[in-house]
Amino acid sequence: TYYTVKSGDTLNKIAAQYGVSVANLRSWNGISGDLIFVGQKLIVKKG
Rank of each mutant, 00 (worst) to 15 (best):
T10Y: 04
S27R: 11
G30E: 15
A15I: 02
Q17E: 12
T4Q: 09
T10P: 01
N24K: 12
Q40Y: 04
G8W: 05
S27W: 12
N12Q: 14
I36C: 03
I14G: 00
V22G: 05
G30A: 14
T1L: 11
V44Y: 04
S32A: 15
K41W: 10
N24I: 11
N24P: 02
D34Y: 13
T10D: 12
K41V: 11
V44D: 01
D9E: 04
A15T: 02
Q40K: 05
A23T: 07
L35T: 12
L42H: 00
F37C: 05
A16Y: 08
I36D: 02
F37A: 14
Y2Q: 11
I14V: 09
I36Y: 04
V5W: 05
A23C: 07
I31G: 03
L35S: 10
Y18G: 03
K41M: 12
K46I: 15
S27I: 10
W28L: 07
G19N: 09
T1Y: 14
A16P: 03
L25Y: 00
V38W: 06
I43N: 06
W28H: 04
L35V: 10
V38C: 05
N24H: 10
G8T: 06
L25M: 07
R26L: 15
K6C: 05
G19K: 15
T10Q: 06
D9G: 01
R26D: 02
N12E: 10
A23K: 11
G8K: 06
W28E: 04
D9Y: 01
L25S: 00
Y2M: 09
G8Y: 06
A15V: 03
T10A: 05
K45M: 10
I43S: 06
N29P: 00
G19W: 06
G33V: 07
K13I: 09
A15S: 07
N12F: 10
V22R: 05
S21C: 06
S21F: 05
K41L: 14
Q40A: 06
G8R: 05
L11K: 00
S32G: 13
L35H: 11
T1Q: 12
I31K: 02
S27H: 10
V20N: 04
S21G: 06
V20H: 03
S21V: 05
G39E: 04
K6Q: 11
G47I: 09
G8A: 06
G39S: 06
D34G: 07
V5R: 00
V38Q: 14
G47P: 09
T1P: 08
G30K: 15
K45L: 09
S7N: 09
D34C: 07
G33T: 13
V38T: 12
Q17P: 01
D9L: 01
D34V: 07
K46L: 12
G47D: 15
D34I: 07
Q17H: 10
R26K: 15
S27L: 15
T4A: 08
Y18K: 05
S27E: 15
Q40F: 04
L35N: 09
I36R: 02
K46A: 13
G47Y: 09
L25A: 01
K46S: 15
Q40R: 05
K41C: 06
D9F: 01
N12H: 10
T4W: 11
I36Q: 02
Q17V: 15
G30Q: 11
G33Q: 11
I31T: 05
N24D: 11
L42Q: 00
V20K: 03
T10W: 03
G39I: 01
Q17A: 15
S27C: 05
K13N: 14
S7C: 05
V44K: 02
V22F: 04
I36V: 08
N29D: 00
K41I: 08
L35E: 15
G39P: 02
A16L: 15
V5H: 00
I36K: 02
T4V: 12
F37L: 09
Y3Q: 02
K45E: 12
D34E: 15
G33F: 09
G19P: 02
A15D: 00
L35A: 13
I43M: 11
I14M: 02
L11R: 00
Q17G: 08
N29G: 01
V22H: 04
K45F: 12
K45W: 11
S7E: 15
A15E: 02
T1H: 10
V38H: 07
K46W: 15
Y18I: 10
S27Y: 14
Y18S: 07
V38L: 08
T10M: 05
S7I: 13
N29W: 01
S32V: 13
L25P: 00
V38M: 08
Y3V: 07
K45Y: 14
A23F: 09
N12M: 09
A16Q: 13
K46M: 14
V44R: 01
K13V: 15
G8D: 14
V5P: 02
S27V: 13
Y2C: 05
S32K: 08
I36A: 04
S32H: 12
L11H: 01
W28N: 03
N24L: 13
V38Y: 06
V38P: 12
L11D: 01
S27A: 11
I31D: 03
V5F: 03
G19M: 12
T4I: 12
T4S: 10
W28T: 03
S7A: 09
Y18V: 10
Q40W: 06
G33A: 12
K6E: 15
L35Y: 09
D34K: 07
V5C: 05
V22N: 04
I43A: 07
K13P: 02
V44F: 05
V5S: 03
L42R: 00
Y3A: 05
Q40V: 05
A23P: 14
F37R: 09
G47W: 13
Q40I: 05
D34L: 06
I31W: 04
G19E: 11
A16N: 13
L42N: 00
G33S: 09
I31H: 03
G39Y: 03
G33D: 14
L35R: 11
Y3G: 01
G19H: 13
V5L: 03
S27T: 12
V5D: 00
G33W: 06
L11P: 03
V44T: 07
G33L: 08
S21M: 06
I14C: 01
G33N: 09
V20I: 12
V20W: 04
I31Q: 04
F37K: 08
S7Q: 12
T10C: 03
V22W: 03
I31V: 15
K45C: 04
Y3R: 03
R26V: 12
S7F: 08
F37P: 05
G8C: 07
W28P: 01
K41A: 10
V22K: 09
Y3D: 02
N29V: 01
T1N: 10
N12R: 14
G47C: 05
T4M: 10
Y3I: 09
N12Y: 15
I31E: 03
A16R: 10
T1E: 12
